[in-house]
């Protein structure tokens, strides 16, 4: 299932780097944080497998918008962040 633009999501509060060697393209500052799907950018081989030369299935990649106010100290700004996040890092908000 491909998430549609506008869908409210939350980035998983998951820290696999605590368990062993990993290659993750989901920045720390977004783990556990709410955002909104902007668009589906396409499907790309999962970098978490690719980096270890394992067979890498294609996974949906999304542009996800986050409010800067929510991520950092809220000052009532409308500024936002737009970040590429793989679908398997997203859960329902």
């Amino acid at each position: 299932m491909i998430l549609t633009p506008g869908t409210a999501i939350r980035v998983k509060d998951d820290w696999p780097e605590a368990k062993g060697p990993v290659h993750i393209r989901t920045p720390h500052y977004l783990r556990g944080r709410p955002g909104r799907i902007v668009r589906h950018l396409g499907d790309f081989p999962n970098p978490e497998d690719l980096a270890f030369a394992r067979p890498a299935a294609k996974r949906p990649l999304y542009h996800v918008a986050f409010s800067k106010d929510v991520l950092f100290d809220g000052q009532g700004t409308t500024d936002e962040l737009l970040v590429e996040i793989f679908g398997h890092w997203l859960e329902a908000a």
Binding site: R25, P47, L61, K68, T78, D79, L81, L82, V83, E84
Partner: peptide, 28 residues
């Protein structure tokens, strides 16, 4: 702190203009 960073580049973005920080994390 994108606005603070831009100020050091002498780039002033009006407060009513939204700053969109694009964090290039993956395949694009």
């Amino acid at each position: 702190d994108p606005r603070g960073l831009l100020a050091e580049w002498k780039t002033v973005i009006a407060p009513e203009v939204k700053i969109r920080v694009v964090d290039s994390t993956a395949d694009y």
